[in-house]
Amino acid sequence: MTEGLWFWHELAPGLGWMLQVAAVELRLDVVGIFTTDPERELVEYPRGRQVRLVE
């Protein structure tokens, strides 16, 4: 993922947000995605999880 991309962040089925990437931080087993949303500034996913991009 790169800065400026939009992606769909879904906490639970039917509960999700479209977020824009500000920066990405790779860790050993987690990817941290810093977003432009002040309420969801950082979301984290396991490294193998696929994230749905918004076109």
Results as ranks from 00 to 15, higher is better:
residue 24 V to Q: 11
residue 52 R to L: 01
residue 27 R to E: 09
residue 1 M to S: 14
residue 25 E to G: 13
residue 48 G to D: 08
residue 14 G to P: 07
residue 36 T to M: 08
residue 17 W to D: 00
residue 50 Q to D: 11
residue 33 I to G: 01
residue 26 L to C: 12
residue 9 H to C: 03
residue 20 Q to N: 06
residue 34 F to R: 05
residue 11 L to D: 08
residue 40 R to T: 08
residue 27 R to M: 08
residue 46 P to D: 06
residue 31 V to D: 04
residue 46 P to G: 10
residue 9 H to D: 00
residue 29 D to H: 04
residue 34 F to K: 02
residue 16 G to M: 05
residue 36 T to H: 14
residue 33 I to S: 09
residue 39 E to L: 05
residue 35 T to K: 11
residue 2 T to V: 15
residue 23 A to F: 09
residue 24 V to Y: 12
residue 48 G to R: 05
residue 27 R to P: 01
residue 32 G to S: 15
residue 17 W to S: 02
residue 49 R to Q: 13
residue 54 V to H: 13
residue 15 L to F: 13
residue 24 V to M: 11
residue 24 V to E: 15
residue 52 R to I: 00
residue 25 E to D: 15
residue 17 W to E: 03
residue 55 E to V: 01
residue 43 V to C: 02
residue 44 E to S: 12
residue 55 E to N: 04
residue 53 L to T: 03
residue 25 E to W: 11
residue 38 P to Y: 12
residue 39 E to G: 10
residue 42 L to A: 03
residue 2 T to L: 15
residue 21 V to K: 06
residue 48 G to C: 10
residue 17 W to N: 00
residue 50 Q to V: 11
residue 32 G to C: 13
residue 49 R to G: 03
residue 40 R to V: 04
residue 46 P to T: 09
residue 12 A to Y: 07
residue 16 G to I: 02
residue 41 E to T: 06
residue 38 P to Q: 05
residue 11 L to Y: 15
residue 44 E to N: 10
residue 36 T to P: 01
residue 10 E to M: 14
residue 39 E to H: 10
residue 30 V to K: 08
residue 33 I to N: 00
residue 5 L to P: 02
residue 34 F to I: 08
residue 1 M to P: 09
residue 44 E to G: 04
residue 26 L to Y: 14
residue 54 V to C: 10
residue 52 R to V: 01
residue 40 R to E: 02
residue 31 V to P: 07
residue 21 V to Q: 07
residue 49 R to C: 05
residue 40 R to A: 00
residue 32 G to V: 04
residue 54 V to M: 12
residue 37 D to I: 13
residue 18 M to A: 07
residue 24 V to A: 13
residue 40 R to P: 10
residue 18 M to G: 05
residue 7 F to V: 01
residue 13 P to G: 00
residue 1 M to K: 02
residue 33 I to Q: 04
residue 21 V to D: 06
residue 50 Q to M: 12
residue 22 A to K: 04
residue 10 E to D: 13
residue 9 H to R: 04
residue 32 G to Y: 10
residue 35 T to Y: 07
residue 10 E to I: 13
residue 41 E to L: 09
residue 50 Q to L: 12
residue 7 F to T: 03
residue 37 D to Q: 12
residue 23 A to Q: 11
residue 14 G to V: 02
residue 17 W to K: 02
residue 2 T to Q: 15
residue 9 H to M: 02
residue 19 L to M: 05
residue 39 E to T: 02
residue 24 V to N: 09
residue 29 D to L: 05
residue 45 Y to P: 12
residue 47 R to C: 03
residue 54 V to Q: 15
